[in-house]
Amino acid sequence: MLPKLFFGWFAFAIIALSVLVITRRNPVHSVMWMLLLFFQIASMYLFLNAEFIAAIQVIVYAGAILVLFLFVVLLLNLREELLANRFINAWPVGLVFAGAIFAGTLSAVVAFVPNFSGQYTVDVINRETHTKALGQLLYTDFLFPFEIASLILLIAIIGAIVLAKKRMRS
C-alpha cells in the first residue's frame, strides 16, 4: 500500500508541475516549477532503485541545464512576454494532437506486463552498489557510445560558444 501511496504522490506532483511548467506566463516561473519537477522525478528514481540516475537528474538537469535556462531567460529581457498571448491561436489543434498521442500511448501500455528478467536484480545491485554496476556497464559494453557522448559534449561546447559569440563589427 505504501509504495502505491508514494507513487500516487509522485504522479500527482509530476503531472501538476508539468502542467504548471508549460502554462506559466513568466518563463522564470516556468523554470522554477521545472526545478521542482526535476527534484520530484529524481526522488521517484530513488524509489526505482536508481541512485546514480537520481543524482545525475539533480546535478546535471537541475544543476546545470536549468541554470542555463535561467541564465538565458534572464539574459533575454522578456518584459513584453508578460503581456503577450501565451498560446498560439490554434492551440486546440495542439491539444487534439497531444491528446491523441496520450491516448495512443496509453492504449499501448495499459495492458503491458513485463515478461523479461535480466541479471541485475535489486540484490545484485545492492551488493555491487549501483554506481559501480552502471560504471562497469558503461566502460565495457558501452565504451564506444560513451566516447561518442564525450565528443558530442565537446562539439556542443564549441558550438555554443561559436553561436552565442557576438559577431565582430567589421
Binding site: V93, G94, F97, A98, A100, I101, G104, A108
Partner: peptide, 14 residues
Amino acid sequence: IIMAAGALIIMGLM
C-alpha cells in the same frame, strides 16, 4: 504539428 502528425501516424501503424 506536421511532425506530431507524422509521429501519430507511425504510432498508429505500430
